[in-house]
Each structure stands twice: as structure tokens, then as C-alpha cells.
């Protein structure tokens, strides 16, 4: 690994910009993610900013069950993001279906639709858990695992 690529990986790890995608969650997970931005948790410590446009973002946080309606939108948003991009599945219903498990209109998990790099479980998730997932993810980015 050259010096330049080490520097680039370090910079990527220090500035993970987040895009929040809600497939139609019950909103609890979204609120907990929003809580990460508040003074108590302050995700900007890690250099993370909440971005509105997929073109600006590095990390896609998906909340809510992956419904048939949302599937195409998730894929489109994912494809609009520039490489390198990472996906975090936030909440039990995104990860495995949760309370919607086995429903006729949901998929069993986000990883059956797009590649996922980190999972956060909880219904709703705790802000600490989201921060933990982000910090594990940026550590792996810095090491060059993903």
C-alpha cells in the first residue's frame, strides 16, 4: 500500500457523509438517527455530515422494512451514489424483516437487495448503536478491509 492510498483511506475514514433513506419505517429508527446529530451524541465529531443528495454521500443508512415498493427506489438511490459507497442497515426490520418478517410485501432483509456493510439491531435502535456501527465501519475503511 502506497502512502497516497493510505492517506486517501484515512481521509475517507475521517469524513463519512451520511444519507438517510427511509423505506417507510415506523419513524422510530429515523428519530434515533436524528438524535445522533444532537448535542448529546454529535456525530459530527467523526466528521460525519447528514447530506440530502445521494451524489454527496458516502454512507447510506437505510431504515424500515424493504418493501416491494421501496426496493427499486433503494437500488436507484444506491446506484446514484459515487463509489466508494457503504451501506448500513439500521433497525431490525431493515436487517431481517423484524415485525414484518414473512409479510407478503416485504423482502427478508436489505442484503437481499443491495450489499450491506454493517448491521445495527434494535427496535428502535439506540443512537449509541448507530455510532458504534459507524465507528466500526470507518475503522474497517481505514484498515482497507472494505
Amino acid at each position: 500500500m502506497g502512502l497516497i492510498s493510505r492517506l486517501i483511506r484515512k481521509c475517507r475514514a475521517k469524513s463519512p457523509w451520511i444519507l438517510l433513506f427511509d423505506t417507510g419505517a415506523c419513524n422510530a429508527c429515523d428519530l434515533e438517527i436524528t438524535a445522533c446529530l444532537t448535542p448529546r451524541y454529535d456525530v459530527e465529531r467523526f466528521g460525519a455530515l447528514l447530506k440530502g443528495s445521494p451524489r454527496h454521500a458516502d454512507i447510506l443508512l437505510v431504515t424500515g422494512p424493504v418493501t416491494r415498493q421501496a426496493r427499486d427506489r433503494i437500488i436507484r438511490i444506491y446506484e446514484q451514489m459515487p463509489e466508494p459507497k457503504y451501506v448500513v442497515s439500521v433497525g431490525t426490520c431493515t436487517t431481517s424483516g423484524g415485525v414484518y418478517w414473512g409479510c407478503y410485501n416485504t423482502y427478508p432483509g436489505l442484503d437481499s437487495v443491495i450489499p450491506v456493510h454493517a448491521y445495527v439491531s434494535g427496535c428502535p435502535v439506540k443512537p449509541e448503536a448507530v455510532l458504534k456501527a459507524l465507528s466500526v465501519l470507518v475503522e474497517r475503511i481505514e484498515r482497507g478491509d472494505i
Binding site: L7, I8, K10, C11, R12, K14, S15, G47, D58, P82, E83, P84
Partner: peptide, 10 residues
């Protein structure tokens, strides 16, 4: 860091 990260993206 933000700048270098953005410069290195697709």
C-alpha cells in the same frame, strides 16, 4: 480530509 475524500471519489 473532506476535500481529499471528495477528490478521490468516483
Amino acid at each position: 480530509a473532506d476535500l481529499i475524500k471528495l477528490l478521490s471519489k468516483e
